[in-house]
Amino acid sequence: MKILILGGTAFLSAATARQAVGRGHQVTCLARGTSSRPPEGTAWVHADRDLGIDAYAGVAGEWDAVIDVSRQPGQVRDALQTLGERAGLWTFVSTVSVYTDDATPGQDESAALHPPLQADTYTDPEQYGPAKVACEAAVIESVGDRAHISRAGLIVGPGDVSDRFGYWPARFARGGRVLVPDTPDALTQVIDVDDLAGWLLDSAENRTAGILNAVGDPLPLSQLLDMVAQVAGDHDQQVRIDPAFLVEHGVEYWAGPRSLPLWLPAEYRGFGCRSNAAAGAAGMQLRPLVETAQRSLSYERQLGLDRDRRAGLSVDDELELLSEWSKRS
């Protein structure tokens, strides 16, 4: 197959390009390449999608599949305008953040969406979901039944530098008492980057169209943390702390400084429990989560367990919180 990847230099798009080359496909990546190059074995069209339709001047011919990971509606519309008629299956990687209801577990692809963003670009993180809704709408309007909309959940594994998952295997590997949220009823779900890349390529090869949630199987956050601790060789030194105490002491949910990754408010129970039944029925394969944890730990060791992080608690913050908690309990 001739596959055009709009991206190809970072995380998911790079993983997809590597797998596509490994499967023997003819792969072209359109990317700026300011921080990294596309994988070996791909053709590289140097282009900045912020330049509009001129960015695609170097892309000639027809494509069996186009895979786009953009989050900016203007970029998606420009790509469709110039390439839509020359593509077989058009895959757009969206997100479960398009859904309005984050409280109800088990919802499928029919759940209500945010109103689409009207602007070509977004800068406020709160507009991420609406921006992806606008991107989806543009894809469907342009290519119709040749569209595959893959609504991904939290993507994790080698190449993830967000710390929204990698914080945990790295933290348990460092040893000592580990602060974790005491949320036995909280659910979470993640998808390994290489499983998602494989799903995108399987769909391209099989011409799988439609809108499908590309998410992992949901499980209790406490169970996931126990499993990650075992992978990291931790010996049950978790200190489970009341969420109310964490909020009171300025610990943030999900991501960012002084946060606990994967932890969400109780009203977000549905965010970590989307249905993946349709994608599973269409052939999406998921590896055991313990393997993803092992892969993530290996990657974290390469980066350095003690590096500065985008998400999680610093050593000093964690020690401070553990000390304050011990005074209460």
Rank of each mutant, 00 (worst) to 15 (best):
A138F: 11
Q118L: 15
A103R: 10
E318F: 00
C135F: 02
T188K: 03
S110D: 10
D124V: 05
V21S: 00
G175C: 09
R77W: 02
A111R: 08
Q223G: 14
L313S: 03
R258T: 02
N276S: 15
I140E: 12
Q189A: 12
H148C: 13
A47H: 05
D195Q: 06
E136M: 09
E85C: 03
V45P: 06
T123A: 06
Q118G: 15
G250E: 10
T123D: 03
A111C: 02
L212P: 05
L322A: 13
P39N: 03
A137F: 05
Y99P: 00
L219E: 15
A31D: 05
R151H: 08
P261R: 05
V180H: 02
L313R: 12
E85A: 11
Y167F: 15
A65E: 10
E300G: 05
A20Y: 13
A186N: 00
G41T: 06
S298V: 13
P169A: 07
S275I: 10
L212D: 01
A138M: 08
D182L: 11
I5H: 11
N213R: 09
P257D: 06
P220F: 01
D226M: 06
Y56N: 00
P257I: 01
A293L: 11
A103Q: 11
A65R: 03
A173V: 02
I191F: 04
P105S: 03
W199T: 04
A131R: 01
S150Y: 01
D306K: 01
G88D: 13
H235P: 00
A170I: 09
W325A: 15
R258H: 13
N276G: 14
A55D: 06
E318H: 12
E40N: 12
F165T: 03
Q230H: 14
E85W: 11
I3G: 01
L4E: 00
R37M: 14
L80F: 13
V133H: 00
D316P: 00
Q72H: 14
G129S: 07
A79E: 02
G153W: 08
D317N: 04
P38E: 03
L51Q: 12
L264Y: 06
